[in-house]
Design a protein around this nucleic acid. Structure first.
Lengths: 217, 217
DNA sequence: GGTTAAGCGGAGAGCACCATCCGCTTACGC
DNA sequence: GCGTAAGCGGATGGTGCTCTCCGCTTAACC
């Protein structure tokens, strides 16, 4: 464990203190984003992490890159929820828990909610993960329809619809977000199962989004 | 028609040109808010109205007051939609058209959507109107439930839930907003009619909102 | 037509934010 | 211990916003 790394100070090329700072930055940023949404100032993050802004910007050249890093894990978790759902022998139950879990994640973390909807145009790894998640979701939809539990005119695009709607809930309600989100989801799941007239589905491109800022304290 | 008004230049105390400018400001602001959301800069409004910013601020001391003025009409229209709905002999049909119309208003006008959700804490006339609208809505809900068409566990607070969800749709989709909103509404109306397990209702205080800015181009 | 208050517009104060620059500090490897 | 590259933080640009100040213009009334 001490041979080859003679020039490289640490496994990832970062000095020990720098590494620590970096980790702390990500941690603090995550907490602040969750609590106050994506538009907390970089200075606030730096201050709370106990570093200068310069340090922050040295690790993450732009705010967007920081956001991407912070939510990469949660994004991945999100996708793995799809895998879990696919593993469920009952596709409809899988579908429901999937929707419930993802929306709960959104509700609990304001930043994540905004990040999902904004979906960070330039973060390629996230994009690829999302692609994978969507494919899994499509499969789940197919199965749930085949099982006769999901209405046939449900569109995959309705997931985006749901996410945006849920985002609207989260954006404007501080503490009641989770409870409100749950109720919305319950309503919609009921509707996804049942039937009734429905206007045609709408493809909402998740990515035509503004800058970054969406919500606020 | 020429007796008493010797000192007063116009009925509302505004000089003719000033009056014209004021009207034009409101008109232009309405258009811009609708198109780009509430956070279009005051300077942009002034420019497009062909006046200086000072003129704008002389008529409307704060941006919020301008927003309030612009949406007062639409707010009233919104409330009158409630009256129409109450006039419908079929309370469920009234309920549905009410929801559809209000959500369509939200979808067509980004600014209105934001304004409804933000609901301008300090605009008292709007508040009173809203109060009246909500009372009417409550009555409509009562009737629709009595008719057995609206599920008994529907809560009045679910209207706010719906508005916020719809706001989420509108905020993040430029042109497809109306179509998407319609689909969401259709889903939810289906669910409002049917039944199924539902978590308890949540009172979302429409007014705990940030500053003003919510959406963006 | 002349007087005058009301109205006007642009420049800029004040603020918040993202991002950068530069001189000092410190962990690391010998 | 010591040299050095890597790391650090505060001051500083630069931008975009809301709202204010002040000297000029013009509509309204005689």
């Amino acid at each position: 464990m001490s041979g080859t790394a003679s020039r490289i100070p640490a496994v990832d090329g970062l000095r020990a203190d720098a590494r620590q700072n970096r980790d702390r930055i990500v941690e603090v940023a995550g907490a602040l984003f969750a609590e106050r949404g994506l538009d907390v100032p970089m200075a606030a993050i730096a201050r709370r992490a106990g570093v200068g802004v310069a340090t922050l910007y040295r690790r993450f050249p732009t705010k967007e890159s920081l956001v991407a890093e912070v939510f990469a894990d949660q994004f991945a978790a999100c996708v793995s929820v799809v895998d879990e759902a696919l593993a469920d022998p009952d596709p409809w139950r899988g579908f429901c828990t999937l929707v419930e879990k993802v929306c709960a994640m959104q509700a609990v973390d304001r930043g994540f909610s905004a990040a999902v909807v904004a979906s960070l145009p330039h973060a390629i790894d996230l994009d690829r993960e999302r692609e994978r998640g969507l494919r899994g979701f499509a499969e789940l939809v197919r199965r749930a329809k085949a099982a006769g539990r999901l209405r046939p005119d449900f569109s995959e695009d309705d997931l985006v619809l749901l996410l945006m709607a849920n985002g609207g809930i989260v954006a404007h309600s501080a503490d009641a977000a989770l409870a409100a989100s749950r109720r919305l989801v319950a309503y919609l799941l009921t509707s996804f199962a049942g039937d009734g007239p429905l206007p045609p589905p709408v493809a909402l491109s998740l990515r035509d989004v503004p800058h970054l800022a969406t919500s606020r304290t």
